[in-house]
Design a protein around this nucleic acid. Structure first.
Length: 419
RNA sequence: GUGGGUGUAGCCCAGAGGUCUAAGGCGUCAGGUUGUGGCCCUGAAGAUCGAGGGUUCAAAUCCCUCCACCCACCCCA
């Protein structure tokens, strides 16, 4: 038997209300902050991600789904959303639009990882990117937007952590200091961190091993090693966040796994951690557009993981709006009545009235059971009697009352019921 | 990629070498007379016991391999 590929999942009807709910709220959020929808291809030329996310990152180094197409070009299923949006911004000359250009998307994301709770090989993200403005006000607005998203969804007990990791001017010096510090304790570092020392110095800061964590306390902090521009930016960001009453905390060991971040980085997590905890993360990426060949263009963005949000909505038992059920279920007895049922169903639907019906002959009892299970508010019963009298027996399943309604009055009557 | 756990019908699960021709609940379908649902009752369908190999007179039950899922690490949404 075939199964869905490892780390992927079918989204069944019972879960769809969560997905529609989230999409609605994301669209509401986008409207609220002036973001427009963009969709980009599921796959891109492989080099796009190598260039932006970084060749040394885990995402690019060992997690991509890549393939050669029939002409031999190397393609990659997108492992994140930002690079594609930036590519589209450049490709369509959006630098000529009023800046910043604010775009949002929701898209499947592919990463070849070992699946576990809240971590899949195909997962879905909402992403919001604001390209073309470097002011800290925009960072603050974006963080405010991320925070508001979860408020709109009704999620409680979240934490907002921010940090600044500097820019291409001040970061090299900071990294050198950090490396120098840790090099002095090389013998005490865990195996992973010995590798990080040379390859990914920033990540030394968020190792979870207790020995490394105690070293982290004395480590130089990025926020204390910013250049003047970055420091001012960070100060302004904090001030604007306070103005917006956002309950942020500064986490100086917050770093992100993509190379393109500069200055602001932030994450939102549930207090009660279940498995993979981060439900949204992002930051500023002032060097990314330039890296792709555009003139220097500042930008900020964040992404939120849909599956992880749903896990938390369920955990917090948040009630999702129900998807409405059809209004009418038509049941019938006998071949002549069947003809009438087919005709009525067509007429109802032509008038926008959601209708279900029985197909194969069954006992009236069985049909009513099915109608009951369908959740339809009304059942229209058609038998020989009704056909002769040109009526249907319209039964209200909630009150269990029923009355004959003339066929030519049916639509009008049902439209009244809707209001 | 590393380590640990689990794997019995669509779902939840009993079962711990012969009494398993695998039990129960939910769900599905059909009935409980002649045109009426939600409760209740009856019945039916549905399982090569994750797959393959082995041990044994005998395996869902023991062993090995593989696969999948779950959990942690790693990484990230």
């Amino acid at each position: 038997m075939f199964q869905a590929p490892r780390g992927t999942q079918d989204i069944l009807p019972e879960d769809q209300p969560y997905w529609s709910f989230l999409k609605e709220k994301a669209e509401e959020l986008a409207r609220l902050y002036g973001y427009e929808r963009i969709d980009t291809p599921v796959f891109e030329v492989a080099g796009l991600f190598v260039r932006t996310v970084g060749s040394g990152t885990d995402i690019v180094e060992k997690e991509t789904y890549s393939f050669n197409d029939r002409s031999g070009d190397q393609m990659t299923l997108r492992p994140e959303g930002t690079a594609s949006v930036c590519r589209a911004y450049i490709e369509h000359g959006m630098a000529s639009c009023p800046q910043p250009v604010k775009l949002f998307y929701h898209a499947p994301i592919f990463r070849y990882e070992r699946p576990q709770a809240g971590r899949y090989r195909q997962h879905h993200q909402f992403g919001f990117e604001a390209i073309g403005d470097g002011d800290a006000v925009l960072d603050a607005e974006l963080i405010d937007m991320a925070w508001r998203f979860f408020a709109l969804l009704g999620l409680r007990n979240l934490t907002l952590q921010i940090n600044s990791i500097g820019c291409h001017k001040c970061r090299p010096a900071y990294l050198a200091r950090l490396k120098e510090y840790y090099a002095g304790y090389k013998a005490e570092l865990c195996g992973d961190c010995k590798v990080r020392l040379d390859k990914n110095t920033l990540r030394l800061l968020d190792c979870k091993k207790s020995a490394c964590r105690s070293l982290m306390i004395g480590a130089p902090r990025s926020v204390e090693n910013l250049c003047q521009e970055c420091e001012e930016h960070f100060e302004q960001l904090k001030s604007h966040l306070l103005t917006l009453h956002l309950p942020f905390e500064i986490n100086s060991s917050l770093v992100r796994g993509l190379d393109y971040y500069t200055k602001t980085v932030f994450e939102i997590q549930p207090e009660e951690k279940l498995g993979q905890s981060t439900i949204a993360g992002g930051g500023r990426y002032d060097g990314l557009l330039e890296e792709l060949g555009a003139k220097p263009t500042p930008a900020v963005g964040f992404a939120a993981g849909i599956e992880r949000i749903i896990i938390n909505l369920k955990k917090q038992e948040i009630v999702i709006p129900e998807v409405p059920k059809p209004l009418v279920f038509i049941v019938w007895m006998g071949n002549i009545a069947r003809q009438a049922a087919v005709k009525v169903s067509g007429q109802l639907r032509s008038h926008g009235i959601a209708t279900m019906m029985t197909y194969t002959p069954r006992s009236l009892k069985a049909q009513l059971r099915q109608a009951d299970g369908s959740g339809c508010h009304y059942v229209a019963i058609i038998g020989d009697e009704e056909v002769v009298q040109k009526v249907v027996m319209l039964r209200d399943m909630r009150t269990a009352r029923q009355e004959p309604v003339a066929l030519d009055m049916l639509i009008e009557r049902l439209q009244q019921k809707i209001h």
